[in-house]
Amino acid sequence: MKEKVKEVKMKRRWGMAIDLDKCTGCGKCSVACNQENNMPIFEDDSDVPKRVAFLELMKVTNDRDAKFPDVKTAYLPKMCQMCEGNDPKNPNPPCVSVCPAVATDVGDDGVVSQIWSRCIGCRYCQTACPYEARVFNWWKPEYEGSFKKSLSTDVSVASRGTVVKCTFCSHIWKRERDAATAKGILDINAVLYTPACAGTCPTGAIVFGDLNDHDSEVYKLTQTDRAVRLTNPVDDVKDADKKKSLLKAKQFTNPKVYYLTSQQWLRDMMRFKKNS
């Protein structure tokens, strides 16, 4: 007798909204991310090709040669943008299809995962990523003194020769799920969590939540006029029919990380438009 087993569907679609008007560029998100995900410590963190960090805090200026009254600056925390492709129900990020080792995959909650122990270090995904959100471990991870004893046990340390990236701290989701089951909550969709960067932001610029839940704060923020996604040209098209035909004709990344800003020069810059 074949038993029918009820399938439990994950309804969540995790997304993030980062308010660039609120961001002061303190870098706390970057520090928290590195600590949570067992990032190695390097002698010189300004050495960009050597550094390994999931979250990069970028400083953006309107013009490199601008003089005092015209110069404008903003800070942009850039992590994996969790692309989902054109269809949220059938996510198709650019990095997943190129991986020959199935080390990167899209979870049921829309989070693009990366298993660094499975990675063979071919770096196809790094090439495919339009946001340069993936980093390659060129050197063996090293930790000063007794730092290795304080590493988080939930995250494995990435060895040399693997590609790593932000996974929206999915180990925290697993931890929260453990805590929920201990309290007797067995529904997979009842578990909420906060990644390290969103939890530590002192100005509350980073908001994390469920994009499928229309009452959540993050969904409301993404529906405002201030919301902009990094270099996703389909967002600029206002006409619904044209948008539909564009989506049919071409794959877009459609990231789940939204940036909120009211400054026009920054919006233009994030869409690779020429400065107006």
Binding site: V102, D105, G107, V111, S113, I115, S117, S156, S170, H171
Partner: peptide
């Protein structure tokens, strides 16, 4: 059976 269900 997604990877991220168990792996990190």
């Amino acid at each position: 059976n997604k990877c991220a269900v168990c792996h990190d």
